[in-house]
Simulated assay, not measured.
Amino acid sequence: MQMSDNWNFYALLVDDEPASIFVDLGVTKETHIADFPIMAYSRVRMNNPRPDGLSSQDEYDSLISLEKDVAEAAERAGKHLYVGRNTSSGNRDFYFYTQNHSIEDFLTKAMKKWPLYEYQTGHRPDEQWSTYWRFLYPSPEDFQRIGNRDVVDRLLEQGDRIEEPRTIDHFAVFGSQEDRNIFAEHLVAKGYAIVRKTDAASGEFQITFDMTDRPDQIDEVTIDLFRAARDIGGEYDGWGCTIVN
């Protein structure tokens, strides 16, 4: 089985510790999950983690090569799917879904190439892919942060000075004029300027608004807007700005 091309990563807290998850977002669109009812994992203890428990630059190349070996071991077996990893508390945990627990034999064989690393493997039934959906898969707020990072990366690629304040445009959409008006009142109280309101033929009631902010501090701004729009029954729909070189 092949992994999808839709992988992404995001930061979060796991057991109140900094963590980073790298996950295959497209695997369930290309796979009949009922065919892989067992979740298996391989936990590798990092040799040189950062003080906060995340991976260090010094160990980056080794960990990437190790990950490639365990993922290829699962792929060669043909009955196992590598779906993601979590890095936290000095460990890197690799997660798989499989048809049978023989995957542990393949993982053990792959780890023989890495004798300096301590590791353990395990498995359990997980027909609903709860580990994938409840742990690895991003929450809606995590998706917002992922989207923010993508926009900031595009700005950086064009030489933007993301620490420089500038007008940032925001967008949201609601199912009724009443909800949109309630949100507009929230925006004005927060100091935003309402740019325009648009009524779509599809029944969507859109609002565009702006404020001066810094792209390198956009997460806090957009998460507040995301939650406010959600609580009123709408959806925050992203942001954009001009480039400052």
Rank of each mutant, 00 (worst) to 15 (best):
R149W: 05
I182L: 12
I21A: 01
K109I: 12
E157A: 14
D5I: 08
E17M: 12
V244T: 12
E75G: 03
K109G: 15
T98A: 05
F22T: 05
A110S: 07
L187W: 00
M3I: 06
T131H: 14
K113Y: 14
F226R: 12
G84R: 00
M111Y: 01
E185D: 14
I33M: 09
I64D: 15
I207N: 00
A19S: 11
I223Q: 14
S88E: 02
C241R: 01
D213Q: 12
S42Y: 06
E118P: 05
I218H: 01
D93T: 09
V151F: 08
V195M: 11
T167H: 15
P140E: 09
S65G: 13
R154A: 09
Q57K: 10
Q99I: 06
N6L: 15
F171Y: 05
Y41G: 06
A200T: 15
V152I: 06
L155Y: 11
A184C: 06
I38D: 08
K112H: 11
V83R: 02
L66K: 00
S130W: 10
G147V: 03
F36I: 04
D237E: 08
E141K: 10
I218P: 00
P115Q: 07
L13T: 13
F209H: 01
H123C: 15
E163L: 13
T31G: 01
T208Y: 10
T212W: 02
R43E: 13
E157P: 04
D24A: 02
E164D: 10
V27Y: 00
F36T: 01
L13H: 15
D15A: 08
G26P: 03
Y82C: 04
I182H: 07
P37S: 13
L136I: 06
K29V: 12
P125S: 08
